[in-house]
Nucleic acid binder design. Sequence first.
RNA 1: GGAGAUGUGUCCGAGUGGUUUAAGGAGCACGGUUGGAAACCGUGUAUAGGUGUAAGCUUAUCUAGAGUUCGAAUCUCUACAUCUCCGCCA
Length: 418
Amino acid sequence: MLDLKFIRENADLVKEAIKNKNEKADIDRILELDEAKRIAQFNFDQKKADQNRVSKEIGLKKKNKEDASDLLAQMGNVAQEIKDLKNILTDAENALNEAILWVPNMPHPDVPVGKSEDDNQILREWGTKREFTFQALDHVEIAEKNGLLDLERGAKISGSGFPIHTGMGARLERALINFMLDYHLIHHGYQEIMVPSMVNPTAMQGTGQLPKLKDDMYRISEDDMYLIPTAEVPITNFYAGEILKNDDLPKKFVGFSNCFRREAGSYGKDTRGLQRLHQFNKVEMVRFVQPEDSWQVLEEMVNDAEDILKALNLPYRVLRLCTGDTSFASAMTYDLEVWAPGANKYLEVSSVSNFVDFQARRASIRFRDNEGKVQFVHTLNGSGLATPRTIIAILENYQNEDGSFDIPEALKHYLPKI
RNA sequence: GGAGAUGUGUCCGAGUGGUUUAAGGAGCACGGUUGGAAACCGUGUAUAGGUGUAAGCUUAUCUAGAGUUCGAAUCUCUACAUCUCCGCCA
């Protein structure tokens, strides 16, 4: 979330950011709630200070065996008054806290203003798109010929969007996950972490999924828990509510998890094969850094994600998302899109974002700097990578005329001959 | 799932209703001492809100929430977490 003081002093800037991000938060209402809360706070504080003072006197008199009945009588209604003022204050706080949770992060000035994905900036492209001497198949056809997927039985057991990987398909999925994790550990110096797939509402609020994305997530109502849409949630919340030492930073974690998304509102879009799923696998990088380092680290993380595609020799491009496409909590996001010749389009396989102090404020992740001052950390995360579309790209780019496909050199070690 | 115990600051730990404004210790930081260090001595050592140019004043927070009371770390209730035992189980 944003600093209330910042909102107070820069209301117009914040309003513009909300508009550019296609969000709807009402800043004027927040300013009113803020004002009301401060008045309520003042009233409560004053009455409570009175009470504390007189109570102390009563204590003193009783200790000295003096009569305190006049003071006690004087305090007759104060307790009830304080209770009422406290209720007013609590209501004001709750209203303000609830409202501010809907305010998105400010986009960085370098983020292009734009409405939709059409306004995203293409920054660079890597690799050469393969020229096919035959009709390139799409991944569903290749998977079918090689027995890699059983989407029908997945739909039977769970529903559409819950794929079953069979035989070499399952091995390839597992190999890819291990390859990506190892690559980040060995070449990029991350620390591996394995986290729960279900989290409580506080964690979801900490990273910014709640309240806005409530309908996009699977909720276990009996236990009031959510299935994670990304490992970002449990990993970033690892330090929630803590004050880290300066020496603890920076932290770099990489973890694999299942990801669960209801994809509400996108039914019928990109439904073929593995393009858009309710459950998929993803390797996620998360960093906790000092504020002055976060923009450089963002570039580093994009490179970390790119290295995976380079190692797999898959053509891709890098986009900087425009304001309208940049997510609620992010200040700047780069997307990596891999080339899928069978589908004849680019597919998003990674999203790398700098949240600056937005998540750190929500989740209260702070550190004590060199001067002993407590500051919010900056958090960043990026996919490194999501497996389904990477699998699509591998199958389509490495396919042969007879319908078989080759294994990328980098994965061979992970797929011993059986 | 059942029974019991426990939850205090960075850590250990005292605190069963009122100068607790959380003792004491350790750690850490700074200063003194020293050729340098250890030991020793001194000082400091939470977070958030309100107010103020500032010093300061003030409010909240002893796992969380609710209650009793003029007054709660302390009493009551609920939730959560940890530990022990029993049951079940990969």
